[in-house]
């Protein structure tokens, strides 16, 4: 026991010396500072910062302890303080990503694993029933049928390409579930994107549109500070995202296949499609059934594949006439009202 052990909360954007101490601590643990963090809980022994944990809204990040102070339950106290601090600021449902070797420690802090990408990362939440509850809720939306399709889309904004994908998938399936990525990091707000998707598929009678939950994770908040290499980061992120889909979301709705459009223009999204094939269809990475991935060729307009990014670019350059050919009338009306 250290008689002078204290915990406190600091804002590193305001305290340069604390920032430097924390960076030193993170480097000792082989971690980088996550750029989204400013609030840290720290443990202080004899005026020295010996452990830290960052809070990014509902995600605990950058947990590190000075190697000289390990094995004294300082980490446990640190996590307890962090959880209580987050609670006092309205965040009860907390997540963290960590290396699989730290799983046992965080388990002792009341965190439970959701999915794990072997050797890279494990996602945990501070409740044993969080994802189970979410799936129970989701399963109320379950529809009968043998072939149940799914599409996850950002729809930023909803284009004729999305509409074509939805129409084709719906025609092939007994029912189609569309998930709209629920985060406000895009040009169009989630509420607007969600309404545009609903309006754009309202003519299809066997389609449900869902908001993706906090379990369909945001790339923006995904921590990369402990993985460092871009290839590992991408693998970890996509692995977590797709395993949650395969292990929890698909079984809750009896989803049997997932549809995706080809990505001729973007290497990143193409890599995502390849990863999707791996995580959804490999029989080793999960004990849950394989989800066949069905890749549909994108439709084109004037030899250009229709994409939301093209619509955004045209909108920025005020080429409104060209947009009209790329989006369904529902999206067109919305854009007219909002921008023209």
């Amino acid at each position: 026991m250290y008689s002078s052990l204290e915990y406190s909360v600091v804002d590193i954007s305001k305290q340069q010396s604390v920032l430097e101490s924390i960076e030193r601590l993170l480097h000792l643990a082989g971690l980088e500072l996550d750029p989204r963090l400013s609030v840290f809980v720290i443990a202080i022994v004899d005026s020295k910062i010996v452990a830290c944990a960052g809070i990014d809204r509902d995600i605990i990040k950058c947990v590190a302890i000075d190697p000289d102070y390990r094995g004294n339950n300082i980490n446990l106290g640190l996590l307890e303080y962090t959880i209580k601090y987050a609670n006092e600021h309205g965040q009860f449902h907390l997540f963290l990503y960590t290396k699989p070797e730290n799983k046992i420690f965080f388990r002792s802090c009341g965190f439970y694993p959701i999915v794990e990408v072997p050797d890279l990362v494990v996602l945990m939440e501070n409740t044993p029933i969080g994802i189970k509850r979410y799936c129970q809720q989701l399963s109320l939306e379950k529809k009968p049928g043998n072939k149940i399709g799914s599409i996850v889309m950002n729809a930023n904004p909803f284009t004729k390409g999305h509409q074509y994908l939805a129409e084709t998938a719906a025609a092939e399936c007994d029912w189609l579930h569309i998930f709209v990525v629920n985060e406000d990091a895009s040009m169009f707000s989630f509420a607007d994107r969600f309404e545009l998707v609903k309006a754009g598929v309202s003519h299809l009678k066997n389609v449900s549109v869902h908001a993706s939950s906090s379990y369909i994770i945001s790339k923006a908040t995904f921590p990369s500070y402990f993985l460092k290499e871009q290839a590992k980061i991408d693998k970890a992120y996509m692995g977590i995202d797709l395993l949650i889909f395969r292990n929890y979301i698909a079984p809750a709705l009896n989803i049997t296949c997932r549809f995706v459009g080809t990505e001729p223009t973007s290497e990143v999204t193409n890599a995502y499609n390849e990863a999707m094939a791996y995580w959804l269809q490999d029989s080793q990475v999960s004990s849950m059934p394989v989800i066949p991935l069905i890749v549909l060729e994108r439709i084109k307009e004037n030899n250009f594949a229709i994409s939301a990014s093209r619509v955004r670019a045209l909108l920025e350059n005020q080429c409104y006439d060209e947009i009209k050919a790329l989006v369904p009338p529902t999206t067109w009306t919305y854009l007219q009202n909002k921008y023209m």
């Binding site: 446990l76 009860f92 802090c109």
Partner: peptide, 18 residues
């Protein structure tokens, strides 16, 4: 509302209610 009591220390427990 959600609430918490207790600690993670040995010989104690943490209780979460919602």
């Amino acid at each position: 509302k959600e609430a918490l009591a207790g600690t993670l220390e040995s010989s104690d427990l943490m209780v979460k209610v919602s």
